[in-house]
């Protein structure tokens, strides 16, 4: 209980910290944000009115608190690249779903493929196989997601014609076609990370297999496979959980690039175009969203720890 409270406090502190950083980062931008929002044609009165309306004349802490208050309600103001006609929240809403699907699909792929593969690769151990597994893993880890995306487009889209590049379908128009298309970008995001998790899980399993308690289990007359599943796996998965949480954060990064390759209307592309158009309200919102997701995931990982590890549970 004490542990949960401690972790919760740490969650709130981290979130606050993140919001301050996100807010503060954009305060150092040179130039007049009213001017950049309204354009150079705006009159002095319009600018002044805008500043008054946005609270730009107030002190920094007050502006932060206002921004945070609105942000908590999901209100990030209007997007300047759409000439202040569209709310940031509306802009993000649609695209969030695309990116979320991409992330979830890749994560499922990673977990579904890497955990069995990791266990399998740890079962047999000899010099040549070891080197080969390490090498194959290393090769896949070295491929950048966006290059992999391009190669997938080339092989499966252009040569094999399993899908038409750029033929993205909205999930609410046709969900099956959406999924059929999304599986390719998801694979591009997932494959390098599958290799990472396999490597990590494998070394964790091999390390745990060497420990005293595994030897004790063997001395009881258990077979190696039984020792692995009954004793070692759970212990070996503890660090893997943290690693998977890190991977989840990393997926977001991969998604930004892969969306670009597959022309997906997701948060990543919105982010890149907002940066190019100096649309700071949108950039701030996206950064705050993704950072919060990462932090909240880490909080849940801490809770999972408590659930599986009695040493955490009972101090």
């Amino acid at each position: 209980m004490k542990y949960t409270v401690k972790k919760f406090i740490s969650l709130v502190v981290s979130l606050l910290f993140t919001s301050i950083l996100t807010f503060a980062a954009f305060q150092v931008i040179p130039g007049d944000s009213a001017l950049s929002a309204l354009g150079i044609d705006a009159t002095e009165e319009q600018l002044e009115e805008y500043r008054e309306e946005m609270g730009l004349n107030k002190s920094l802490p007050v502006r932060y608190l206002n921004w945070l208050k609105n942000a908590l309600r999901g209100d990030f103001g209007y997007s300047s690249q759409y000439r202040m006609q569209i709310k940031v929240s509306a802009l993000i809403g649609d695209r969030l779903i695309v990116t979320a699907w991409l992330a979830v699909l890749s994560f499922l792929l990673i977990v579904a493929v890497s955990i069995p593969l990791g266990i399998l690769s740890a079962l047999k151990k000899n010099y040549i196989l070891d080197s080969l597994i390490t090498l194959v893993n290393q090769v896949f880890m070295s491929v950048p997601s966006f290059f992999l995306g391009m190669m997938i487009t080339l092989v499966f889209g252009i040569i094999l014609k399993w899908f038409t590049p750029g033929s993205y379908v909205n999930p609410w128009e046709n969900f099956r076609l959406f999924l059929r298309f999304m599986i390719f970008p998801a694979a591009a995001v997932a494959i390098p990370r599958i290799a990472m998790v396999v490597k990590f899980l494998r070394s964790s399993l091999l390390r745990e297999m060497e420990l005293d308690y595994a030897r004790t289990a063997k001395s009881k007359g258990m077979s190696n496979i039984r020792v692995l599943f009954r004793h070692v796996l759970k212990n070996a998965l503890i660090p893997v959980i943290t690693f998977l949480a890190m991977i989840l954060a990393d997926i977001l990064a991969g998604a930004i690039l892969v969306e670009q390759v597959f022309n997906l209307p997701g948060l990543g592309r919105l982010l890149v175009s907002s940066i190019a158009n100096r649309d700071y309200a949108v950039v701030q919102a996206i950064i705050l969203y993704s950072a919060s997701v990462v932090i909240i995931i880490n909080f849940f990982v801490d809770l999972i720890y408590q659930w599986i590890d009695p040493r955490v549970r009972t101090g």
Partner: peptide, 8 residues
């Protein structure tokens, strides 16, 4: 270290 830390 000779007991599994996760089991009673």
């Amino acid at each position: 270290t000779s007991f599994n830390p996760l089991l009673t």
